[in-house]
């Protein structure tokens, strides 16, 4: 038996079909275990997420899985990817635990395990220390802010009025039209006047492609329910616990079905961790719910000046600056959901 990387994905796909598995479009590395010219096992990786893992039943318990995993980890390691994640069905959890993967969180549909140097507890502890926040009870918001609008600001202000201390986590995954550092900076500038609000990077375990691979795709299937619930539970078990978060604020979602499903998952899951979810009615301006996608639509139509009514001054200043030109061009060309 030998293990080689392959570009003949059609062959891999038909092998995976026997296991009721499909190969995601985003994989950038695929390995196959071959014996007598036949595929007997395979696994793939999309950046740091290992997926499409299967070993033919005739060869299970012969070390094919461990050799596939070793090889893919070695390749990823040499690429500088030291932390890996696996999503799998709950019934496969113990297989991967036996191969050195650690359980992070799971539900009846999907389980997330982590390998390599990934360690959620260590990571979240470190996030908390770096934040220099105290142990007092807090309220939290998780936002993408693509870009930061008066709608976001209204939501944060509401939380700031009702709580002593508020933490805003900005989604760090860089798949949005406005890059992460710009989104973070615009929120920081936009809430400067609220002195009980801290704005922090969301890190690797809040709506990242590891915890939540579907957020950045606009689809409403069963995967979505599974992943939103997974992300909510990770927030409850690790992040809220370390930061002492007792409340989470969300805005009502008029446009995006993915965000809407996410809100529902939060309301379902977070109370299990003693976290109250407060839903705040979206800010309306002339009967229009102010949202980032609404603002991006204005930008797409070239109506930058019209955004003035819907975004804080700091965001507007950015939009008319030279720095924003490239982003605006990108928005005009795309129809990305986020």
């Amino acid at each position: 038996m030998e293990i080689v990387s392959t570009y003949d994905l059609e062959r891999v796909k038909s092998f995976l079909r026997e296991f009721d598995l499909s190969l995601d479009e985003d994989v950038d590395l695929t390995l196959v275990a071959v014996e007598d010219d036949k595929i007997i096992g395979t696994c793939s990786a999309a950046k740091n997420v290992i997926k499409g893992f299967a070993v033919s039943s005739d060869f299970q318990s012969e070390g094919v899985a461990s050799r596939l995993l070793t090889k893919i980890q070695n390749i990823l390691f040499d690429r500088g990817i030291y932390e890996t994640f696996i999503f799998t069905k709950p019934e496969n959890k113990s297989i991967f635990e036996g191969l050195g993967y650690r359980f992070v969180e799971g539900n009846s549909d999907v389980v997330l395990l982590e390998g390599g140097a990934a360690n959620v507890e260590r990571y979240v502890k470190d996030m908390f220390i770096k934040s220099s926040l105290g142990k007092e009870e807090k309220a939290a918001l998780v936002m993408n802010c693509n870009p930061f609008t008066l709608g976001h600001k209204f939501l944060i202000e509401t939380a700031a009025k009702e709580n002593e201390r508020v933490v805003v986590f900005i989604v760090e995954e860089n798949k949005s039209l406005f890059p992460f550092d710009v989104r973070l900076e615009l929120v920081k500038r936009g809430v400067k006047d609220l002195d009980n609000v801290a704005v922090l990077p969301g890190g690797k375990y809040i709506i990242s492609s590891a915890t939540f691979p579907s957020y950045f795709l606009r689809r409403e299937d069963e995967k979505l329910r599974a992943y939103t619930r997974l992300d909510a539970a990770i927030f409850g078990r690790y992040i809220a616990k370390e930061f002492n978060i007792k409340r989470r604020y969300v805005g009502t979602e008029p446009y995006c079905p993915v965000t809407n499903a996410y809100n529902n998952a939060l309301m379902d899951i977070l109370p299990n961790f003693n976290i109250e979810v407060r839903v705040v009615e979206r800010l309306l301006k002339d009967d229009v719910a102010v949202s980032a996608s609404f603002v991006r639509n204005l930008i797409r139509q070239g109506r930058i000046e019209d955004t003035k009514k819907y975004v804080p001054e700091s965001t507007y200043e950015f939009l008319i600056s030279n720095e924003a030109k490239e982003i605006i061009e990108k928005i005009k060309r795309s129809d990305s959901p986020h």
Binding site: G63, S66, T70, Q73, N74, F77, Y82, G100, G116, A117
Partner: peptide, 18 residues
């Protein structure tokens, strides 16, 4: 720098050093 040795095969250990 990060480095590794070993395998995840049975009777072995996979060591990563950072």
């Amino acid at each position: 720098k990060p480095a590794k040795a070993g395998t995840m095969e049975s009777n072995d250990i996979y060591i990563m050093v950072y």
